[in-house]
Amino acid sequence: MKPKVAFFDFASCEGCQLEVINLEEKIIDLIDVVEIVSFREAMKEHSDEYDIAFIEGSIQRPMDEERLKKIRGNAKILVALGACACIGGVNKLRNEWSVDNVKEEVYGDADIEGNKLFDAFPTKAINEVVDVDFYIPGCPINKVEFAKVVSHLAIGKTPQLPNYPVCVECKKNENICVFELGKFCLGPVTRAGCNAICPQFQDGCEGCRGFLEDPKMEAQKDVLRKYGIRLDDMMKRFNMFNYKKGVY
């Protein structure tokens, strides 16, 4: 029996689901192995009978929270897809301000009071609402890693994320260290799995895959200081995908 798979999205850019579509002809193989029963971005067909639910996006409103809990109830395995779902991603940046403040900045004095569509609370990653079985991090996800997780689930092997920093992939790819190009990089504290794609194009890692289980933050800050980066600038960049109240 093919496992039944469903995709759902919350507050996000839907780029991670698009990355799945970007598997191109490999999707044809994929639908031989799993049965996709719901994928709103690309399909009209829908069923609530599924084994594996992939969730993109973060949770912004009570109505989203309810919908997510329902999905968790239906799914045997729930997988967080992408930075917004895994860690809140850029959506969490607004948590620096109160909900009223950001609403006013965006919707001005429009009458949205009491309208449940606009009823936001501070952004949550999905594991702040339901239990998550597996994570596919990144902004966007890496389609190769997605395919790997799916094949692991299909063959009965627990998917595991690399527990080493992006530097490892940079070295294997013989990238020039972006610090040597005078750029800021979070690679040493960020979980690998992206194949160091940003440094490969001479841009620093922004930490979109989330930090390692045991990131050496103090050592990282020492290095950044050595390269003349100020603490407030550091925090702005540490926070980009990994917003945290207070200082890292």
Binding site: D29, S151, Y164, P165, C167, V168, K172, V189
Partner: peptide, 25 residues
Amino acid sequence: LTCGSCTLVCPTCFCYDVEDVMNIN
């Protein structure tokens, strides 16, 4: 930083890991 760079760029380091990877089919 425990980044492993020192060993990865070393001409005499030879440790390795092995992993099975399935095609999506």
